[in-house]
Design a binder for these strands. Structure first.
Lengths: 191, 191
DNA sequence: TGTACATCAGTGAACGCGCGTTCACTGATGTAC
DNA sequence: TGTACATCAGTGAACGCGCGTTCACTGATGTAC
């Protein structure tokens, strides 16, 4: 079979999308290539038509998923969506309960720390960009203060979401999210 | 060979110590039982004399490691060590660069969220205890306010330490830690 | 217009490997008589 | 005191399994002449 133009790009994108969701749901190490390919409607061997290795896929998934989040931040900026909304969405029970479509950082940061340099480099670049975008969204303070606030708010959000996901007690989990919202909002708005 | 009294407990403790360090350094999934046993100076098969399964070991490692941290918090309380010191130690470059001897939560929280109920139950119980202990260490505010502060500070510390470890850029990594220290101290001391 | 060959995304079996787990066995010491 | 047996932490080979990766092959379409 020969395929129509753009078919390969579509397939590649489909594999990326499937892998992206599975990685965020179950972790990188726990997800096998055979499973990803099967869910994408393909067989094992076709994987290497699109990616050089699993590590290559991981790097591309991270860049892809974090780029999408960047685009959302940019759209938020243009539409005047306040940082308060971003904070509340990030620290919502909905986000906690749907890791597969959520923030790749919160889902994978622990694993990323143990991945090869190239993967961490890609991640680092995207996190740097996100911090800059978040800083722009904050209204109070000098540029330097807004950058600091963005970094702190990012740390709170990532830490709280992960704790809320790991903890096996709905009350404590909700409490973690609520306190984080309050703290992040206070930091965003303080002078 | 028959062994002196207490030998088995010592061996078990030794396996726990080795596993605890390896898990925190490399992650649970990436560490095999054969490697742990070899480092403990034993062979594969002896593992099941001490633990029912890898998951059983994981649970025991978490309880053990978090209990030791609890004990440190209790000693801090008795010796009047201020929460500021705890925050600075937690968010130090030393802690960032030595995951194997550091906080199990920061090292493993992402993986724990995907482990079975029994493991998460054990983790949840220990986190609850730690929050109570941290709240006691905070001086400003009512009991309820101190609990909230403890939860928020814990979220910041866990998130910032993980981000600082994952990011592949010393400057950004240090920046993340420094901002988190500042934010955590501000929360601890605000009225 | 018809035929021969090139292209290439995808197939599916096979590779070596390390995983968690099992189990028959070892051998130094303790206990019973 | 000497002998036979019980105990049990640890040995080390083997189990089935799923992993990431490789590779000879397929077959529909495009291109050359």
């Amino acid at each position: 079979m020969r395929y129509e133009k753009g078919h390969k790009d579509e397939t590649r994108r489909h594999i990326l999308d499937v892998a992206s969701a599975r990685f965020r749901e179950s972790g990188i190490a726990a997800v096998g290539l055979a499973g990803i390919m099967a869910e994408a409607g393909l067989t094992n061997g076709a994987f290497y038509t699109h990616f050089a290795s699993k590590e290559d896929l991981v790097r591309e998934v991270l860049v892809e998923a974090l780029t999408r989040r960047e685009e959302r931040h940019k759209a938020n900026l243009e539409n005047g969506v306040p940082v308060e909304t971003v904070i509340r969405d990030y620290l919502s029970t909905r986000h906690r309960d749907h890791a597969g479509t959520g923030c790749p950082t919160a889902a994978l940061v622990g694993e990323i720390a143990r991945h090869p340099r190239a993967t961490r480099d890609a991640f680092t670049g995207k996190v740097s960009d996100l911090v800059v975008l978040m800083a722009e969204q904050i209204r109070q303070g000098t540029a330097e203060e807004r950058r600091r606030k963005a970094i702190t708010i990012y740390s709170i959000m990532v830490g709280a979401l992960q704790l809320a996901r790991a903890v096996n007690d709905k009350k404590l989990s909700d409490e973690i999210l609520e306190n984080a919202v309050e703290a992040a909002l206070a930091i965003a708005n303080e002078r």
